[in-house]
């Protein structure tokens, strides 16, 4: 990420936060250290996210299509009980990048996997999948991103011993799961990139005294889904496939997987049959996400010139086992 983008985005979010709060801080005041809590939330090559007080600004990946991002943003604005609603309905330009604005929420604690809100996550996904798209949206980008990760592996680590099993596992998948054919479902609204980092609790809304004469009981805000970059219509099982893949690779305990799946079914999510074997629909997306995650892991290990760790090896091992058991639906 260019450092000048981070500086520009930080100045932008500071100005936006204070404009939003109707403060009188002007740009010249940024010379003085501002007392608000602020910082960088994400600084990857393709995405930069910063916050200042309660305002988050996200610079989307270079090349993000405004005509795709705007309806995705509109979807979040229309589904405030499921997706975190944006502060502004349209993206703005900043140094050639599209920037969106969000309230600053509390994420799931990565150091406490036991506290992961599996039931809340599953219920949100079920509700999203049951909601007709409020505005027309492009296809969700899950398969395209998996294809991108596998292509990157092919390009950067052709000779690594773990590359062949990942590529073989990928090759057995149907064309839609490899992002080279339209998905068989073009109507269901999907998140497209679900993992535990995609949940936040929004800031608590303080009721005004006029509306709430009695002190409101302290209540934790409900979890909401964030990150609409890959949101769109598609195969909803894709959104369950990352936990499914972790479970299949022996990384997620059966109990946690069971809690997630049961909550999804209880909320009448359409991605899996209401009872019986869920793998009839999960198998292909879980294979694809295992291959995608393994591809990223191997590429990272090669870039860092280090061996695969135990978790990374378990993903590659799962890819190797896939060769012996072909997907239930034939590649098309």
């Amino acid at each position: 990420m260019p450092p000048d983008l981070l500086r520009a985005l930080t100045a932008h979010v500071t100005a936006t936060a204070h404009a939003h709060a109707r403060d009188s801080v002007s740009v010249s005041d940024t010379e003085r250290p501002c007392p608000c809590p602020a910082g960088t939330l994400t600084a990857r090559d393709d995405t930069t996210v910063v916050h200042h007080a309660g305002t988050v600004a996200k610079a989307h990946a270079p090349g993000t299509d405004r005509d795709h991002l705007t309806p995705r943003l509109g979807t979040a604005a229309h589904l405030p009980g499921i997706l975190l609603p944006p502060l502004a309905p349209t993206p703005v330009d900043l140094r050639g990048r599209l920037v969106t604005h969000w309230p600053h929420g509390t994420p799931v604690d990565p150091d406490d996997p036991d506290a992961a809100p599996w039931e809340a996550a599953a219920t949100l996904l079920a509700r999203l999948h049951r909601t007709p798209p409020p505005v027309p949206v492009p296809p969700m980008r899950g398969p395209a991103k998996a294809a991108h990760a596998v292509a990157a592996l092919r390009a950067t680590a052709p000779g690594h011993p773990a590359t062949a099993p990942v590529l073989h596992a990928w090759a057995t998948l149907p064309a839609w799961a490899r992002g080279v054919a339209p998905m068989p479902d073009t109507a269901t609204l999907c998140h497209g990139d679900f993992h535990l980092g995609q949940l936040v609790r929004p800031p608590a809304v303080t009721p005004t005294p006029a509306l709430a004469p009695a002190p409101a009981p302290a209540r934790e805000a409900p979890w909401l889904l964030i990150d609409i970059d890959d949101l769109g219509t598609g195969v909803p099982a894709w959104d369950l496939a990352r936990p499914a893949a972790w479970y299949a690779c022996g990384l997620l305990a059966p109990d946690e997987w069971h809690r997630f799946l049961t909550a999804y079914r209880t909320a009448r999510g359409p991605a899996v049959p209401p009872d019986g074997d869920p793998w009839t629909t999960l198998d292909v997306p879980a294979r694809a996400l295992t291959a995608q995650t393994a591809a990223r892991a191997v590429a990272k290990a090669v870039a860092a010139d280090r061996p695969l760790d135990e978790v990374e090896r378990s993903l590659v091992d799962a890819c190797a086992r896939m060769e012996a058991v072909r997907p239930s639906s034939p590649p098309d």
Partner: peptide
Amino acid sequence: AAPQPPAWGA
């Protein structure tokens, strides 16, 4: 009670 992983699972 445990759900079954797919055949390629660990």
